[in-house]
Design a protein around this nucleic acid. Structure first.
Lengths: 256, 256
DNA sequence: AAGTGGTCTAGACCACTAA
DNA sequence: TAGTGGTCTAGACCACTTT
């Protein structure tokens, strides 16, 4: 036993060392619990407590009946938020693609098939969305809720909220894909000239983890984009939940 | 017992419901293990397994000898990456402050005292940094490593890497605060006209969690900014580790 | 059928905090 | 000192996957 460590910590430290040194590569199987019980002479629950520490760190995944493995993530999809839905005035779509397609084109490079499920409703938005949109207390917003899939695996949740007066009677009220040159805002005559993005990092809520089929110890980014027109009026607030294991967020800015 | 749930899941579900409904507010104490054992008639380890699920979700924190509490985070410090170290050409510092002070001024509003520990070394940078800087394989970089504190609590880790030829012999090689109008780059005559930010979300490495004194189930954002001059040459690569429980990342962009 | 991990128990002892 | 959570044990039974 190592000094100043519990038995479980000792097991965690040993395995962590092997993983971080590359001795155990991504996808490699860890010793079974029975083997470790023999090797260390500790009880089963103690072994499990040690391994659990690594699961909580995101280094190890387990599967019932299968074994324990060094975690190996998929390649991350890159979200370039600088070009996404941000060219509404110069309506020339980025690289010849419509803005609505951008999420799709970002992932469709290698024969992957993106898909999204859309539902539209009128709701009382979350507090911070209500404030961002400048709605009165108790005010309603049009919510376009999307679940985005790549190859049938869920990839992200995206909820857009609009002030009702701006979108009632437009195609945005229909639960269908809207892919127009310049983005969905331009498609209903709204011109976004500025946006404000807020990103926070947290563990997923229980329901989010279910919807996104997240492995243990997978945090998410909550990305909120609020778009404004030339008068400073908020046009849309879009809240995207991006699982950390399959996304990379990108900003490219000319600062001169 | 609820249908289709283990006993531990049942306990987790009950507590989660009380927390999410606001029945148990942030900072409120949960029942003790002894109480829950009586209330449910389950064994102690089962109770603990249930509570552990909520700890892993980031909803509950525990303290030995103290009890279990609904998690309550500090207020988040806002990092506006759009104005931070991004005005090197127009050397008028943002709002009259030097760029080096911006991290400090972001948190010093309410009598908080920021501080940072700096150390400088010459190292082989991590793979992705080396590529971003356009260094040859095995090439070296100057590393300015900073640990940032607010009121003696660690808040972030920030490692900046520079191509050696750009900074040798400059004040950037000294482990001291460099706060110059227009930022540290401008202080040594480098003009950044473009930057590229990459953000990924993950659980902290064991050492990061120690350095930052992170509570359980606290993910981090890894923010990498690479700055370029007018010729497209990479000037700096800055890797910042931002704990999710104390930061909010902000971008404000004019898109017209 | 054999091997894996997942759940649960009853009990012991330890470490820490607060009254 | 009493009450809290943290660690550990030996054993049982269950659920799942692979052979």
């Amino acid at each position: 036993m190592r000094r100043g460590m519990t038995k479980a910590q000792e097991i965690a430290a040993d395995l962590r060392e092997q993983i971080e040194s590359g001795d155990l590569e991504g996808g490699a199987a860890l010793p079974s619990e029975a083997e470790m019980m023999r090797a260390y002479g500790y009880s089963r629950e103690t072994i499990r407590a040690g391994v659990r520490m690594l699961v909580d760190e995101g280094l190890v995944v387990t599967g019932q009946g299968q074994g324990k493995y060094v975690r190996q993530d998929f390649e991350r999809v890159v979200w370039n938020w600088t070009t996404l839905e941000s060219r509404s005035r110069h309506a020339t779509a980025v690289e010849g693609k419509t803005a609505g397609d951008q999420w799709a084109s970002a992932v469709s490079g290698d024969g992957k098939t993106p898909r999204q499920e859309i539902s539209v409703s009128i709701v009382e938005p979350p507090e911070h969305v209500r404030e961002s949109l400048g709605l009165p207390e108790g005010g309603l917003a049009v919510k376009r809720q999307r679940v985005r899939y790549v190859d049938s695996r869920p990839y992200a949740l995206a909820d857009s909220y609009f002030p009702p007066d701006l979108v009632t009677g437009t195609p945005l009220m229909e639960p269908r894909d809207v892919s127009a040159p310049g983005g969905v805002l331009a498609s209903v005559g709204l011109i976004q000239v500025r946006y404000r993005d807020e990103i926070t990092v947290r563990m997923p809520a229980h329901k989010e983890a279910e919807l996104l089929a997240l492995p243990a110890a997978t945090p998410v980014a909550e990305h909120t984009r609020t778009g404004y027109d030339a008068d400073g009026k908020a046009l849309r607030c879009m809240v995207t939940i991006l699982p950390g294991d399959r996304h990379k967020i990108l900003y490219e800015v000319d600062s001169d």
